[in-house]
């Protein structure tokens, strides 16, 4: 009973912090389950994938209703994120735990640095200039063409090839490390494809469900997901994300972000130690 409550409570905390800091829960859930509950790395990734699908599905519905997510762009890219996730799911069962822990440590460091830079630049929704999107894309796409169908109000995604390549990588990262992959997809869409930040965030969130499902199916069919652990954790994460999204407007997250960066750094050290044995 105590362990059950701790799993749900840990999931709740991950959901609240993930929601407040704009992160998927995966980056928190995997360390929580490996260090807090002694799960092996792959088992923690399996549970984490379930949790990110739950939070993605809940948030994506809201983003779609508010017309923030670009469904067409998301569907193009998720063909490739899902392919990457399928490959990643298969590779995950070939790699030793230590290698996965080492990769996760790198992800933690990257996330911590990204959060620090975000704090330093504090750009808000600084969309790349789209006054003349043809600068990067060449000639404007013909009306009715495939590229034109991907456009949204005031923007048109460019560099589709880079977006597709990056999406395969995002899918691999998601499947290997049990995260949503937003940390790859959002900068890819925003900085490379010149999609406004809010649209990139919403579209990334929409894609997470399908991406994580592709790899979660591999984990599930290879007995890589323990429902007795996934159930309480996912319920806790869902409840936490609901609470976090409601209190986010009332909380100054600057200090929280610094604290979180410190936690990420410490966790990265622990993951590195686990990786080197």
């Amino acid at each position: 009973m105590t362990v059950l409550l701790l799993l749900a409570g840990g999931g709740f905390g991950a959901g609240v912090f993930g929601s407040l800091l704009g992160l998927g829960g995966g980056i928190l859930i995997v360390p929580l389950l490996t260090f807090g509950f002694g799960l092996d790395f792959r088992a923690a990734v399996g549970v984490s994938l379930v949790c990110v699908i739950v939070t993605s599905s809940a948030a994506a519905g809201v983003y779609l209703e508010r017309h923030l997510a670009n469904l067409r762009l998301g569907m193009l890219l998720e063909v490739f994120t899902a392919s990457g996730a399928l490959i990643g799911g298969l590779i995950a069962f070939l790699l030793p735990d230590r290698v996965l822990a080492g990769l996760f440590a790198l992800l933690l460091v990257y996330t911590a640095v990204t959060m620090l830079r975000r704090r330093a630049t504090s750009t808000g929704d600084a969309s790349p200039s789209i006054e003349n999107p043809d600068d990067a894309a060449g000639a404007a796409p013909a009306p009715g063409s495939f590229r034109a169908a991907l456009a949204g109000p005031g923007y048109r995604p460019v560099r589709l090839g880079a977006g597709i390549g990056g999406s395969v990588f995002a899918g691999l990262v998601s499947a290997l490390l049990g995260v949503g992959g937003g940390i790859v997809k959002v900068p890819l869409m925003h900085l490379v494809m010149r999609v406004p930040l809010k649209v990139a965030t919403a579209t990334s969130n929409l894609m997470i469900g399908v991406t994580a499902s592709a790899s979660a199916i591999v984990y599930l069919l290879r007995d890589g997901i323990n429902p007795l652990v996934a159930g309480p954790t996912a319920v806790g994460v869902f409840a936490g994300a609901m609470v976090g999204s409601r209190v986010a407007q009332r909380i100054d997250v600057r200090l929280l972000r610094l604290l979180f960066v410190a936690v990420l750094a410490l966790t990265a050290v622990q993951m590195t130690l686990r990786a080197i044995g």
């Binding site: 379930v50 699908i53 599905s57 994506a60 469900g209 399908v210 499902s213 979660a216 429902p227 996912a234």
Partner: peptide, 20 residues
């Protein structure tokens, strides 16, 4: 409990696919 948990997991994985 395992019946509900397995079905819940399957429903979780199926939701994004139903969306597609």
């Amino acid at each position: 409990p395992e019946g509900f948990l397995w079905l819940g997991l399957l429903a979780t994985l199926a939701t994004p696919l139903l969306r597609v």
